[in-house]
Design a protein around this nucleic acid. Structure first.
Lengths: 103, 103
DNA sequence: GCTACAGTTCACCAAATGGTTAACAGTCCG
DNA sequence: CGGACTGTTAACCATTTGGTGAACTGTAGC
């Protein structure tokens, strides 16, 4: 797991692939869809998603079935939510202070 | 707002800057801290954070005071949480199905 | 066995990224 | 005024990124 999941999510095509996989596992062909890029391009994006631990793959015959590794995305989500909590708390403190001053 | 907030969060130094700012506004010097990179490097990272709408800056004399633009980060957080909800619902459906089969 | 299919790997390319040092622009202050 | 301080800009560099077409690997199925 060389890369951060945030790195993986930094490209719009990769985010769309994640959106597709959130709805359930899919083959490479299915996620390739209509991005207007070639197969090798998608292949590279999938490699990034795999190496960052966001996506896993099971080879079944000539099809590769992709799934989200939800634990990894969970970690990234937690980081974001944690930051939100910190700045929200800060906001509350400031707000309380303002109310305090009004009294 | 040229770039996605995810792009902004894709570099570890920029995530650390966000973590610092979640605790409250700070000057450029304060966020520069001990990353072991030069000032111009930090300056570039800040530019990325600003252009993606994650950070705003108010110039006060020779100091530049940075703050988080929480609405932007909120949007990104929402995206992540939304994906989580979708895959969680999927997981529940599968689990329910398994329980159904056991009966 | 042969062809079609699903997907990756290779070799290449242009552009973006992340870093550097040196120089610059304002501001503060004795 | 003149120096110290805060931060950006400019010019440069190496590496990474994101894309391409062509060739390849392996499986499916007639």
């Amino acid at each position: 797991m060389v890369n951060s999941p945030f790195k993986a999510l930094s490209h719009p095509i990769r985010r769309q692939i994640v959106e597709r996989l959130a709805a359930g596992p899919a083959t490479v062909g299915e996620v390739t869809g209509d991005f207007g890029v070639s197969k090798p391009a998608i292949s590279k994006h999938l490699k990034v998603l795999e190496e960052s631990g966001v996506v896993s793959r099971v080879v079944d015959g000539r099809k590769h079935v992709l799934s989200l590794r939800t634990e990894t995305l969970e970690e990234a989500t937690d980081w974001m939510v944690r930051q939100r909590e910190i700045w929200t708390r800060l906001f509350d403190v400031v707000e309380d202070h303002l109310k305090e001053e009004q009294r």
